[in-house]
């Protein structure tokens, strides 16, 4: 029996073979050897380095962790490849958001693709954290675990500036603010409030505001609801493939793939800022966030990330 070699020699590398990159790979982040530039997002501070000048709702997005995915019942679960994954964690405070960001610039225009293998979890219960009785919980039925309804949402997003600044955003809304299952992809209809808008007195948001779009009414669904593989309990980690494509030549979304479902995003609007921002020419930032809707820590794990472009 003969087999035909893969046409793209890059994909003979097992670390790359699980991805579907565009022509040029900009970034391949394997978290077994560091954080690869993924860092906590923070708002801007003044000329003195006075942290009191940082917007309160952008002051505590938590440092990402190199996680061995260890749990109380099985010890080290490990990542999809190797031992370590990047973990973004919230505080156990309803409305708290954890955010990690990756900062690049653009040397061209065209399609940009973000791929990752991810898992998401709410924290397992302990006497100290009180998760078993926190809002969103309930009774275990030996299949669905109440922990799943204590996971709020995770988000993949960009911050881009080619003269015009805009964000492309896709959020998986696992549960709504009332802890009801939604399993719905959503997008914001407004641009993210910025530190400059606060500086100009236009907006002042509280600590646990949803920084991407604070008003729940500004989030709209796209695609059909999609069920994931949470896998019943908060200590079993199954990795999901995510592939998200945008086009920086048209400032538009293209599509989002999660495992075997491809959601057409070509009609999902991308709201630009009306005002000009300096110091940001060719900005190309990617961020991932995790947001809890109850007083239970929520976690987003990334096994690895690959960002590719067609320029």
């Amino acid at each position: 029996m003969t087999t035909t070699p893969h046409v793209d020699p890059r994909l003979l590398d097992p670390k790359l073979a699980k991805f579907n990159p565009l022509r040029r790979i900009l970034v391949h982040d394997d978290f077994n050897d560091g954080t690869h530039g993924w860092v906590e997002l923070i708002g801007n501070h003044d000329e003195h380095g006075d942290l009191d000048t940082v917007d309160e709702h952008m002051s505590d997005f938590r440092p990402p962790q190199l996680s061995s995915c260890s749990f109380f019942d099985v010890g080290t679960h490990g990542a999809m490849s190797g031992t370590y994954a990047l973990k973004v964690a919230t505080r156990p405070v309803a409305g708290h958001t954890g955010v990690a960001i990756r900062r690049l610039t653009m040397s061209g225009r065209g399609r940009v693709q973000f791929e990752t293998y991810l898992a998401y979890k709410a924290e397992a219960a302990s006497a100290e954290n009180g998760a078993a009785t926190a809002a969103g919980g309930g009774r275990w039925d030996a299949n669905n675990h109440p922990s799943e309804q204590q996971f709020g949402a995770f988000t993949v997003a960009t911050d881009i500036c080619d003269g015009v600044r805009y964000h492309t955003v896709a959020r998986y809304l696992n549960t709504d603010l009332d802890h009801q299952v939604r399993h719905q992809w959503v997008y914001p209809t407004v641009p993210e409030p910025t530190p400059r808008e606060h500086f100009e007195g236009k907006v002042k948001l509280p600590r646990t505001a949803d920084f991407t779009a604070p008003n729940p009414e500004d989030w709209k669904p796209f695609g059909e609801p999609q069920e994931m593989c949470f896998n019943e309990v908060p200590t079993k980690v199954n990795w999901h493939y995510l592939r998200w494509v945008i086009d920086t030549s048209t400032r538009k979304n293209v599509e989002l793939q999660l495992n075997d479902v491809v959601h057409d995003m070509s009609d999902v609007p991308v709201p630009p800022y009306d005002e000009h921002y300096g110091s940001l020419q060719n900005l190309l930032n990617f961020y991932v966030s995790v947001r809890t809707h109850t007083d239970v820590r929520n976690f987003l794990y990334l096994d690895s990330v690959l960002i590719s472009v067609d320029w």
């Binding site: 923070i42 940082v54 002051s59 938590r62 440092p63 260890s70 973990k87 505080r91």
Partner: peptide
Amino acid sequence: RNTTLTGEFTTEPYE
């Protein structure tokens, strides 16, 4: 970061 501590506290877990 820029946190005001009073009384008893614990920091967030870190791996």
